[in-house]
Design a protein around this nucleic acid. Structure first.
Lengths: 237, 237
DNA sequence: CGGATTGTTGAGGATACTCAAGTTAGGTGG
DNA sequence: CCACCTAACTTGAGTATCCTCAACAATCCG
């Protein structure tokens, strides 16, 4: 599969490549390889030497970190168009987390050495990459603020809304999270246990806010969920 | 005070300007102004239009965010050499937090409009700035992981160690945090209350790990603190 | 049709918060 | 220089949230 020629049209519209000329883009794509991953596959693992960085074209990835004690934390979800595995930009020799495909995924990969070349040679790309990191930093701070100040139910509400915004697809009955999410996953995003998540979601389901199922999630009433997230709706009746 | 000529030697050694030529540096400094802040002063406030970005030359700043409910969270401490207030890099029109001097401080300031000019015109600077953001992102993730998985005492241990590493000065008896830190501050860094911090620190003081005082903190035994942080030493007894 | 993964629900208990005094330290003005 | 005032801190008691432990049910997959 590697070294198949990559179609410029596929990536031209990604925000990451905004204001990058066709000429530059061809140059950039020349050193890329395309890879396919099936659900469950690891794109890279925590601690491994960071010899590549990636852009996700299709699918979803879950990036996790494992604590020394073996507890897992979900750092973020990678959505199509996202840059990931950019350990090099952090001047790290290894990947700080593990990236797993949660559904069938396709990514472009470049050798790490290309990073600095791209950054120095394509200022527009550098600005876009910086913006990507900025967005990620803001999300991390938002989550920190939540973890520091909010009770579990509100954190779960925010996590679910974030999933709906980033990876939701509108359906007749609400917003569907269009990849498999387990209660354990939500627990690892919010710093709680799957038990607590289960209790909260069943309560919400009774209230008609969401509809769950085995690794399925449909948000029926985002507005009321937002109220819960902001502490303006009951919760602990 | 503004528009006094700025000495190149003062900033030449900062990591941010590594590999930036003298020529470029002069160009960059030409549009900078230098400002002084006394303890307590706000450099900028949350929500304010981000018309400048800064580099701290001397002193310490505390960057906080306030939740809609009025709870404060300390996002980070700014140390000499650090870039801060770079809302522009995040494509934000306003500052996402408030920066207060905790001790006498001096900073360089540039108009926001210069940001893109610098990034496009000085690739070395762009790479360094990206690295700065990368470091910050890693710290945010580390804190997230802590908040998600660790109990309060361990989080406090990590926060204190982080302060010691970033802003500590070696003394005969240990590592002194060389600016005023209150228990409230530590609480706002770790997502707990000043009461709990007080209880933990007095316990540590009895054990000879630290020595406290009104807004004072001296780490006497970083090694044992690290053990507590990693969950390898008692704590709750 | 088993086996495994995922999810549900209950009971009990611990961590850490809230509420409530009170104490100490530092700065300020008389 | 001392008295006072405030901000920072200490400490105790009661309690709520949420975790742990435990058993069981449902769903998916081969």
């Amino acid at each position: 599969m590697p070294h198949s020629p990559i179609n410029r049209a596929l990536v031209k519209l990604l925000p990451l490549f905004e204001k990058v000329s066709d000429q530059e883009l061809d140059d950039i794509l020349a050193s890329a390889t395309s890879r396919r991953y099936t659900a469950g596959d690891a794109v890279f693992e925590q601690g491994q030497t960071a010899d590549q960085f990636f852009v996700l074209l299709h699918g979803r990835l879950r990036v996790t970190q494992v604590t020394p004690e073996g507890q897992q934390v979900i750092v973020r979800m990678v959505n199509p168009g996202d840059l990931f595995g950019i350990a090099r930009a952090l001047r790290r020799p290894d990947y700080p987390g593990t990236a797993n495909a949660v559904s069938e995924s396709i990514a472009l990969a470049w050798p790490t050495a290309q990073w600095d070349v791209f950054m120095e040679g394509h200022p527009a790309l550098a600005v876009n990459a910086m913006q990507t990191m900025g967005g990620r930093l803001q999300e991390a701070h938002a989550r920190l603020r939540e973890m520091a100040t909010e009770e579990v139910e509100r954190r779960v509400a925010h996590a679910v809304l974030r999933l709906a915004n980033q990876s939701g697809r509108k359906e007749s009955e609400g917003i569907r999270i269009d990849f498999p999410v387990s209660k354990q996953d939500i627990a690892e995003m919010t710093g709680t246990t799957l038990h607590t998540v289960s209790r909260i979601l069943t309560a919400w389901e009774s209230a008609g806010l969401v509809r769950g199922g085995r690794q399925k999630l449909l948000v029926r009433d985002p507005h009321r969920l937002l109220l819960i997230g902001d502490g303006l709706a009951p919760g602990h009746l």
